Computed example of a mutant assay.
Amino acid sequence: MCLWRGWRVPPAFLELAEKVACHCRGQVFETPWAEAWMATFHPSALLRMPDERARVKARRHFEEDLRKVADTLRSLG
């Protein structure tokens, strides 16, 4: 599985640029390069968020994404 951290997702990696235009954070995709691929927040971006509410929300999303990565890895065997 490939976990991309940060917002600059390379369009070629997902094959379709329109997938990048939508917010693909937290979604698992299959690509020619990896059975599973997901984008999430970069950990340092969470630390730099000035708004505490936004930071708490983003951290929850990040933790959900990591759980989804673990579940996906278990299912891939």
Rank of each mutant, 00 (worst) to 15 (best):
M1Y: 13
C2Q: 15
C2I: 15
L3A: 11
L3Q: 03
W4E: 10
R5S: 03
R5W: 00
G6C: 10
R8A: 10
P11W: 02
P11D: 11
A12I: 08
A12Q: 11
A12C: 07
F13A: 09
L14V: 13
L14G: 08
L14M: 12
L14Y: 08
E15H: 11
E15C: 14
E15F: 03
L16I: 01
A17P: 02
V20C: 05
V20Y: 01
A21I: 14
A21V: 12
C22D: 05
C22P: 00
C22A: 11
H23K: 02
R25T: 01
G26Q: 02
Q27V: 07
Q27K: 11
V28D: 05
V28K: 02
F29K: 06
F29W: 14
F29C: 08
E30H: 06
E30W: 02
T31A: 03
T31C: 01
P32L: 09
P32E: 08
P32H: 08
W33L: 11
W33C: 01
W33Y: 14
A34C: 07
E35H: 08
A36Q: 07
A36Y: 05
W37H: 04
W37F: 07
M38K: 01
A39F: 04
T40A: 11
T40S: 09
F41I: 00
F41G: 00
H42E: 06
H42S: 02
H42T: 00
S44V: 04
S44G: 00
S44K: 00
S44M: 03
A45K: 01
L46V: 06
L47S: 06
R48D: 05
M49Y: 02
P50T: 02
E52M: 12
E52C: 08
E52A: 15
R53E: 12
A54W: 05
A54T: 10
R55I: 14
R55L: 08
R55Q: 15
R55S: 13
V56A: 12
V56D: 10
V56F: 03
V56T: 15
V56E: 14
K57N: 10
A58D: 10
R59S: 13
R59E: 06
R59V: 05
R60C: 10
H61C: 11
H61M: 12
H61I: 14
H61G: 06
E63A: 11
E64S: 09
E64A: 09
L66Q: 14
L66S: 09
R67G: 12
R67S: 14
V69T: 09
V69P: 00
A70T: 13
A70N: 11
A70Q: 14
D71C: 07
D71A: 11
T72M: 04
T72S: 03
T72Y: 01
R74G: 06
R74W: 13
S75P: 00
L76S: 12
L76M: 15
L76P: 07
L76F: 13
G77L: 08
